[in-house]
Design a protein around this nucleic acid. Sequence first.
DNA 1: CGATAGACTTACCGACTGGTAAGGCGTCAA
DNA 2: TTGACGCCTTACCAGTCGGTAAGTCTATCG
Lengths: 191, 191
Amino acid sequence: MKITSDTKTRMLDTATHLFAERGFYGVSLANIADELGLTKQALIHHFATKEKLYGQVLERISDDIISGSSATDDLETFFETFCGHAIAHPQDSRLLMRELLDNRRRAEEATRWYLEPFLRNLIDRVKATPRWRHAPDPQALSIAYQLLGAVSYFVISEPTLTRILGSAQFSEMQDIYPGEIRRTVRLLLSG
Amino acid sequence: MKITSDTKTRMLDTATHLFAERGFYGVSLANIADELGLTKQALIHHFATKEKLYGQVLERISDDIISGSSATDDLETFFETFCGHAIAHPQDSRLLMRELLDNRRRAEEATRWYLEPFLRNLIDRVKATPRWRHAPDPQALSIAYQLLGAVSYFVISEPTLTRILGSAQFSEMQDIYPGEIRRTVRLLLSG
DNA sequence: CGATAGACTTACCGACTGGTAAGGCGTCAA
DNA sequence: TTGACGCCTTACCAGTCGGTAAGTCTATCG
C-alpha cells in the first residue's frame, strides 16, 4: 500500500470501465469503490468529487488519443491506427461518445475542451491531401467526420450487433471492418 | 382533460426530449413531471414504471424510423431521407445512440429488439445494388454501417462542433453534410 | 521513542430516487 | 341521485446519492 499512485491508477482504470459502460449518472461512487474493494470515501480522498474523477478519466483518454497519433501519418495510416485503437479499446470510444452526448449540459462547467486539438489536427490532415488541399474547413471536417463516425459508431454497437448477428458473424464483421474503412478512405481521397 | 391520450402524448414528447438530452439515469420522473406541470405519480399512472415509459419512448422512435423508410427506395435515396430525418430530429438520433451504448446492461430485461428489423432491411437494401449483390451479410452490413455511423455521429456532435467551429461554420457544415454523404454513398456503390 | 503525514475507515447527513397507498375531483351512465 | 371510473393529487416509504466530519492505521523520519 506504499505506492499511492498505484491505487489512484487502479481507481482511474475502474472508473473508466464503469463510466464507459453505464455513463456518468449510471455509476455511483459506491459502485466504483465496491469493484475496487474500497469505500467511496477513498475515492473522495484522492479526487475530491465525482465530477473531478470523471474529468481526470476524460483527460487521460484524450491524452492517449492525441499522443497516439503521429503527426506525420497520412490519412490512410491515421485511420488505420485509429480504427485499430478503437477496436482494441472500445471503452475509450464508448466514453468519448457519451461525452459527445452529454457535454451540452456539462458545457457550463467544462474547464478544458478535450476534443478540440484532436479535431483541428484532423482538419489539417485532410487538407494535407492532394484531393482536399483547397477545401474549406467545414468540408475538410465533413470528410474526416464521416470516417470518425463510421469507426466509432461501429465500435460502440458491439452488444447490439452481437445480439442481432450472433457473435460469430460479429467477429467476422470486426475482422473486415478496418479493411472496409481503409477502402472508404481511399475512395474519399481519390473521388 | 377529457382526452387522456393527449396528455400521454405530451408525456412521451417531454420524456423523449429529456431522455435524449440527459440519458435514462440523468432524468428522474420528477424532472419530466415538472416540465409537464404535473406530478411524477401522473406519469406512473399512465406508464406504471420509469422503465416502461422509456420503453414506449424507444418504441415510438423505432416505429417512426421504420415506417419512414420506403422499402422501394434505392440506397442513395434511403440515406438522403435518413440523413434529412436525422438532422431534422436530432433527439431521435441521440436517443438511439444512447440506447446503443446502454443496451448491454438493459439486455437482460429487453422484451423487444427495436433495431433488428431496421438493420435487416438495410442489409437487404445494400444487397439489392449491383455492386454488392453477392456480398455476404457482414460485408453488406459493414457498408451500411459506415454510412449510418457517418450520419449519426455527426448529428449528435452538434454541441461539440458548435463550440469548436462556432455556430456559423457548424450550420455551414450542416448544409453540406447531406451532399457529402450522398457522394460517399455513390463512391461506395461504384468503387 | 514520539511526531507527522498520507491512506483509508466508520458514522453520519440532507437531498433525492422510484414506487406504494389512499383519496379528491370531474364526467358519464343508470 | 347515486355509483363507478379515469385522471391526477398529497402523503409517505425505504433505499441510494454525493459529500462532510472525525477518526484509525501504518510508514517514515528526526
